[in-house]
């Protein structure tokens, strides 16, 4: 009887994962009001891009159809993914522990914290794709940008996107894990970290202008190669002069290595944070500050 139960009623591996993704969608989408959510997804990135446009115009006086602006614009558009996913996953633990007080039950459930965080992040990742597409469309429509993505580039572009997405999810999980050991007042940390990445990966400016050791850090993180790969695929040329010597395959390889490293560090961070949180009783301790 018990064996039959174990087999017939055992949840599929996919079930809890989909449930977590759906929960993420419901929470992120302002409790399932798609219109409000999409407005939210579009307005912020759009004005972020507009700030960039004005900065570019008042300084250079060049048209926005120029190559440099295209590099800035595309980098900024895709970086929305990092900002949104890292902030989202990074705040899941605070929300679930402090506000909804559900963390202990999620921890007890068979899904596992890592998969749960990834699933929550996937929901945001899917929604952010819309923001990116919209921002790119605005770039073409209002600012005269031209994208050159040929069918032949599509596999490369897809691989770049997938690896960048994995690295971003891993970074979110790493931060999510860290927040298990933090009081609620660390809520701005995930957004701050995405700000740091913005600075280091050269989302809108070439990393070549970064002073050492920032430039060295920029060459270690996968997002630098992610954005370079995206720019090469979409605009036909890269942005960073010092990376110009690398072939597309080398960019992909560096992104792959960086992604693998980020995943490994994220996994270790999460395991350590889980262990420490359980050992010190912080897992479900409501900090209230």
């Amino acid at each position: 009887m018990s064996e039959a139960l174990e087999h017939s009623d055992a949840p599929s591996r996919l079930g809890p994962w989909l449930a977590a993704a759906r929960l993420g969608w419901a929470i992120e989408s302002n409790w399932a009001d798609p219109f409000v959510f999409m407005t939210y997804q579009i307005v912020r990135p759009l004005f972020g891009a507009l700030i960039l446009v004005v900065m570019f115009k008042i300084v250079t006086g060049q048209p926005t159809s120029s190559a440099v602006f295209g590099q800035m614009y595309v980098g900024n558009a895709f970086f929305i993914l990092v900002v949104q996913c890292v902030s989202c996953i990074g705040l899941v633990i605070f929300d679930d522990r402090e506000r909804y007080q559900m963390l202990r039950y999620i921890y007890l459930a068979p899904i596992g914290l890592g998969a749960y965080l990834a699933a929550r992040g996937m929901a945001r990742l899917a929604a952010t794709t819309v923001s990116i597409l919209f921002t790119l469309a605005v770039g073409a429509w209002l600012f005269g940008l031209r994208y050159h993505l040929s069918p032949a580039d599509l596999p490369y572009f897809s691989l770049i996107l997938i690896l960048g997405g994995i690295a971003t999810l891993a970074m979110g999980i790493m931060l999510g894990g860290s927040t298990m050991l933090m009081a609620q007042n660390g809520w701005s940390m995930p957004e701050g970290v995405s700000g740091v990445l913005y600075l280091f990966c050269g989302a809108v400016f070439s990393i070549d202008i970064l002073p050492w050791p920032f430039s060295a850090v920029a060459r270690l993180i996968p997002w630098t190669y992610w954005l370079e790969g995206i720019r090469r695929s979409l605009l036909g040329s890269g942005y960073v002069a010092s990376l110009a010597g690398l072939t597309n395959a080398q960019i992909l390889l560096r992104l792959g290595i960086g992604t693998a490293g980020t995943v490994a560090v994220a996994w270790l961070t999460l395991r350590f944070a889980e262990y420490r949180a359980v050992a010190t009783g912080k897992l479900d301790e409501k900090t209230d500050h």
Partner: peptide, 23 residues
């Protein structure tokens, strides 16, 4: 959280201007 991270955001925007060779 309150000092270092916002400072980096300022750096990012300052570097954009520097990258564009702004005054």
């Amino acid at each position: 959280f309150e000092v270092t991270l916002p400072l980096l955001a300022v750096f990012a925007f300052a570097l954009i201007y520097r990258g564009l060779h702004a005054p």
